[in-house]
């Protein structure tokens, strides 16, 4: 099967609706198809990867630890909108530390999060072939 550039665009906050959780399920499945996968976190999508999520009080499963596993599935490009963070009073320090081990660099641990401004995000999007948004 051919390899395509897949982009998953996440623009919605977790828990309020199921989109973030079910989007993550597709992302994990896509890893099995060995595609060139990127994720974008824009607008309220940045809340999906904040650290310290505690969903006990709402009776729902905290699925944020799953984002930490993405590196193990070779999903290593998580573009986060710098404007969206700033608009929400957040910085990259408010996000989980998401990393992967680079097989081409003696398995050195590297950050998966790539801060991107609008121009950089647009340039990345222009490279994509299959864009999934939920």
């Amino acid at each position: 099967m051919s390899t395509k550039n897949f982009l998953f665009v996440n623009r919605k906050a977790p828990y309020g609706t199921i989109y973030a959780l079910e989007s993550l399920e597709v992302v994990l499945i896509s890893a099995a198809f060995e595609q060139n996968v990127s994720l974008a976190f824009i607008d309220d999508g940045v809340y999906q990867i904040t650290k310290g999520q505690n969903s006990k009080g709402i009776g729902m499963k905290n699925f944020s630890p799953t984002y930490r596993a993405l590196g193990d599935y070779d999903i290593t490009k998580l573009y986060v909108s710098s404007e969206s963070l700033a608009e929400r009073g957040l910085t990259v320090d408010d996000l989980m530390e998401l990393t992967y081990e680079d097989a081409d660099d003696d398995y050195a641990e590297k950050p998966s999060i790539i801060l991107a401004n609008r121009e950089e995000m647009a340039a990345m999007m222009a490279e994509q072939e299959v864009i999934l948004s939920f």
Partner: peptide
């Protein structure tokens, strides 16, 4: 069927 069918559709 499974979610793989969606990814396959994209490919």
């Amino acid at each position: 069927s499974g979610l793989g069918q969606l990814v396959e559709g994209g490919i």
